[in-house]
Design a protein around this nucleic acid. Structure first.
Length: 166
DNA sequence: GCCAACGTTGGC
DNA sequence: GCCAACGTTGGC
């Protein structure tokens, strides 16, 4: 069961640090950026139907030499149409989508706190408590994934954050 | 509706 | 750069 504890839900969002690292997010205006470009229906459905403003997320670096969790973000705005789908100049342009019935959505994420200690993927794999985590399953490619409250707390602890205070 | 071909993701 | 996993496409 993906955690909704006291109304708060947890997610893991993947980002290629070359495109947007957690530090980039911290440096962005209002520490926010549109988390756009999702072109997978399962991920789209989660963003559209499950992810809510106020939810928290692990900000995960993928497609890089040292994949892992870099920090905590929160969802600043829930799903809205992803403008890149309408932009013919965008790599993410989708000619099949229309403004009257947009196919793809984005959310806006806001940096909360960088982990004092970066938590690399191989460390996550070595945690017995995280054995069932979606991220660690073979062939898992979803760019947005639910995180249970238990997983959330373990990973914050690994990152050097006292979960009782966040 | 099946399924082979192809493209993408993403760890290694 | 390799390759496993998985999603999408398109012929039939």
């Amino acid at each position: 069961m993906a955690g909704r504890a006291g109304g708060r839900r947890y997610w893991l969002l993947k980002s290629e640090p070359e495109a947007c690292s957690f530090r980039d997010l911290l440096a962005a205006p209002r520490r926010r950026t549109a988390w756009d470009g999702v072109r997978n229906y399962q991920a789209r459905n989660l963003l559209r139907d499950e992810v809510r403003a106020g939810d928290f997320a692990l900000f995960y670096h993928s497609g890089t030499k040292l994949p892992g969790v870099a920090g905590i973000a929160r969802i600043a705005r829930g799903a809205e149409p992803d403008p890149t789908q309408f932009d013919p100049d965008s790599e993410r342009f989708d000619p099949k989508s229309s403004r009257s019935d947009p196919t793809w959505v984005q959310v806006v994420v806001e940096a909360v706190q960088e982990f004092p200690t970066f938590v690399p993927l191989d460390l996550l794999r070595r945690q017995p408590a995280l054995a069932g985590m979606a991220l660690l399953r073979r062939g898992q490619r979803l760019s947005v994934q639910p995180v249970t409250e238990k997983e959330w707390r373990s990973i914050l602890a690994l990152g050097g954050i006292d979960a009782r205070r966040s």
